[in-house]
Design a protein around this nucleic acid. Structure first.
Length: 505
RNA sequence: GCUCCCAUCGUCUAGCGGUUAGGACGCCGCCCUCUCAAGGCGGAAACAGGGGUUCAAAUCCCCUUGGGAGCGCCA
């Protein structure tokens, strides 16, 4: 719950006349504002997506605002492709932002202003140390097994030092030498750092551009971010940022540092671990809500519940209840969850997501064949991914190019010919092409030939689908339609005969 | 090396001083069954180690060990 009082302004933004459709709102005086601030040096990965999700959920849960900010001050490594990949990833996941995307490169003026203020008030100073000297310093410190940090040579200088002075100075923040800073983290609790461990960090490069720790603070401040939710890897930066907030005369936001996601080898998640890009999961046939569910549940829980709708997540997610420890990404559980979501979803929803996969495979459900929604209904509980569903549904729209070797060998044997012929005949005479009738034909055929259902259903299945797997045979044939069914049975019968002829020849 | 964080089945987790340590994924059986699934039932599987505190510790404290992160004119 917000610890923040209404001290700043005290303007109650939440009034009874004001309604933006959110159901329940805890009492507060300031609207919660969260942000996701990726640096566009690569695609949106699983770890980033989770912090984005947590920020988004926290904002949605409290009727707040979610801001997207692109941290692109590193012009060397930021690319437009990466920006697009991130935006596309966010879009696919459905993590909509209320404000932004803001680009830090558009905001250099703002940083310059604050920088000047720190300089003017003596809270920052010019540092003329060369990279070479700094490098030497670091090496010496490391040789002495000390923590490398700036020694403060230029801290109290008025101008460039007489020796070893760089042409263009950087700007360093005058960090307090003594005392300590305590961060009250929503996830970790109180974390204490000794100021003596910190050094005077560079806040502006020699070319005048601001650095990360400075820009985040300025941006979070100006964008009114109340809750900074980000990766664990930033916890160590937080004390420096706290000092910057104070130097700029600003209120501190709440911090929440979410633990890292590790690969199966226990190392931080990276390309080596397979599909780490969010969009790759889309391409592999995952539903965005399944990924979101998985990500939410990785590091957070609500009793024994495993499957959550997005609405439930918004209602139940609590940033304070997030786990402390890093967690390992588990693809098989994600796969299971995806299936759960596929089974639970509305057929038309699945159909929408499935269509592109069919198109990709050269099939257009709009051009004849059974209604896609009906196919989805038949396949829903037998597909872990949309890719799998697409592959297994192709035969509804396209005659099998051939028969799977093993399936044919087992089911399209000479003795199946008679059964198939019989069924074809009965099917042709059915007054109505309907599941119940079809089922009756199959059971009666089994009785007539004194065989088990499998001896009838499997040859039919292979005949119409080309393989040994499909939804229940009556459902399958009903969907396929009489005409197609009869034609495919005929083809199978012809194939069996051809095989027999070849065998005896 | 220094600083910070973390530690329950293989994995995700419940547990917040007294439990036969619960659930889920995965795995293994069995049932259902026209295939594949789904579903049902059952099983194997964990408190990293050592000290305290306490009548009582998975739960609180300390140490050790192990893992992670940070220590840039990257973000």
């Amino acid at each position: 719950m917000p610890r923040q009082s209404g001290a700043l302004g005290g303007v109650p933004l939440v009034g009874w006349g004001l309604s933006n459709g959110s159901r329940r709102r805890p009492p507060m005086t300031t609207t919660i504002r969260t942000r996701f601030a990726p640096s566009p040096t690569g695609y949106l990965h699983i770890g980033g997506a989770r912090t984005a999700l947590y920020s988004w959920l926290h904002a949605r849960r409290h009727g707040g605002r979610f801001v997207l900010r692109i941290e692109d001050t590193d012009r060397e490594r930021s690319t437009p492709e990466a920006i697009n990949a991130i935006l596309e990833g966010m879009g696919w996941l459905g993590l909509d932002y209320d404000e932004g995307p803001f680009y830090q490169t558009d905001r250099f003026e703002r940083y310059r202003e604050h920088l000047q203020r720190l300089l003017d008030t003596g809270q920052a100073y010019y540092c003329y140390c060369t990279k070479e000297r700094l490098e030497r310093l670091r090496e010496e410190q490391q040789a002495r097994k000390e923590k490398p940090r700036y020694d403060g040579r230029c801290r109290d200088l008025d101008g460039p030092p007489s020796e070893e002075a760089a042409d263009e100075p950087v700007v360093r923040f005058r960090s307090p030498l003594e005392g300590h800073v305590v961060i009250d983290d929503a996830i970790r609790g109180k974390v204490q750092f000794a100021n003596a461990e910190l050094d005077d960090l560079v806040i502006a490069r020699a070319d005048g551009t601001p650095t990360y720790n400075f820009t985040v603070v300025v941006d979070d401040l100006e964008m009114g971010i109340t809750d900074v939710i980000r990766g664990d890897d930033h916890l160590n930066n937080t004390p420096r940022q706290v000092h910057l907030y104070k130097a700029l005369g600003a209120e501190l936001p709440r911090f929440a540092h979410v633990p890292m996601i590790l690969g199966e080898d226990g190392k931080r998640l990276s390309k080596r671990h397979g599909s780490v890009s969010v969009l790759q999961y889309r391409d592999e046939g995952y539903l965005p809500e399944a990924l979101l569910n998985y990500l939410a549940r990785l590091g957070w829980s609500h009793g024994d519940q495993e499957v959550f709708t997005l609405e439930e997540l918004i209602q139940l997610f609590d940033i304070n209840a997030v786990n402390h420890s890093a967690s390992t990404f588990n693809p098989s559980k994600l796969l299971w969850l995806n299936q759960q979501h596929i089974m639970a979803a509305e057929p038309n929803h699945i159909a929408r997501h499935l269509a592109p996969f069919l198109t990709e495979r050269g099939v257009d459900p709009g051009q004849g064949g059974p209604q896609l929604e009906a196919v989805v209904r038949a396949q829903q509980e037998r597909a872990k991914t949309l890719v799998e569903m697409a592959d297994n549904s192709l035969f509804f729209y396209r005659r099998p190019a051939g028969y799977e070797e093993k399936a044919a060998r087992k089911n399209l044997k000479p003795d199946a010919e008679e059964v198939l012929e019989h069924c074809r005949h009965c099917f042709a005479g059915l007054p109505e092409w309907e599941q119940g009738r079809i089922h009756q034909v199959v059971t009666e055929a089994a009785e007539a030939f004194e065989v088990k259902m499998g001896k009838v259903a499997q040859p039919l299945r292979v005949a119409v689908s080309g393989g040994a797997v499909s939804p229940p045979i009556d459902v399958t044939l009903a969907l396929l339609g009489r005409e197609e069914t009869l034609a495919r049975i005929e083809a199978a019968v012809a194939w069996i005969r051809a095989q027999a002829a070849q065998g005896s020849a």
